[in-house]
């Protein structure tokens, strides 16, 4: 029941927004078509401005991944994290989550397929994915679009959020699903 509801909700939200905003606009005497085009014309330049930032970040992350350096760091972190009660299977997800959204999605899908979505590992991995975000992507794109090159402490705060989300997921899932 709840599953069906959330599924329908996520299907309907965007169409409803796309319908309601122009209707309300029309009745408030906005020239809806002209306004849309005016707003949309900014889209191109903004996306282009992000490009150099995305290239810089994605090249570094890709070299780190493909060279195998990432796997080495994961192996190095495993014993430390296992001491803190983190299951070894989840360590790759912890490293990947802030770096690459598609990468983290891939790892989670793999965990779900090998251990089963209703296993403890599957539940924790799903919760991690649902309660954290791709910090470096957001940082690159949001700050890139406005030309910010000095992010100050926001990198630290963003990564701290990911860490809390990861540790919190393990803690809450073991409490909730036992």
């Amino acid at each position: 029941m709840f599953s069906l509801l959330t599924e329908q909700l996520s299907l309907w939200v965007i169409p409803i927004i796309l319908l309601l905003v122009p209707i309300v606009g029309y009745f408030r005497r906005v020239k809806v078509y002209e306004a849309f085009v005016e707003g949309a014309s900014e889209g191109f330049y903004t996306a282009i401005r992000i490009m150099p930032f995305l290239v810089a970040m994605m090249v570094a992350i890709n070299i780190f991944r493909l060279s195998g350096a990432m796997d080495v760091s994961i192996d190095a972190l495993k014993p430390i994290l296992e001491l803190c009660g983190v299951p070894a299977e989840l360590v790759p997800l912890a490293i990947m989550r802030p770096l690459s959204g598609t990468g983290a999605l891939g790892i989670t899908t793999e965990i779900l397929n090998t251990h089963g979505p209703d296993s403890m590992l599957g539940r924790i991995a799903s919760t991690v994915l649902g309660s954290t975000d791709t910090t470096f992507y957001i940082l690159t794109v949001y700050f890139g679009a406005i030309g910010i090159t000095k992010p100050r402490y926001s990198v630290f705060v963003g990564l701290l959020g990911d860490l809390i989300g990861f540790v919190g997921s393990i803690y809450i899932c073991t409490k909730l699903f036992n």
């Binding site: 927004i17 796309l18 905003v21 122009p22 309300v24 606009g25 408030r28 906005v30 809806v32 306004a35 849309f36 085009v37 005016e38 707003g39 949309a40 014309s41 900014e42 889209g43 191109f44 903004t46 996306a47 282009i48 992000i50 490009m51 995305l54 290239v55 970040m57 994605m58 090249v59 992350i61 890709n62 070299i63 794109v141």
Partner: peptide, 28 residues
């Protein structure tokens, strides 16, 4: 990765235009 980043920016152009257009209507 460099090529992929450019591809991603180009993909962003479409959704950027769409949502910035809707935002403009909502703003006005």
């Amino acid at each position: 990765a460099a090529e992929g980043a450019v591809g991603l920016s180009f993909k962003l152009i479409g959704v950027m235009c769409l949502w910035l257009g809707i935002m403009k209507i909502a703003e006005l």
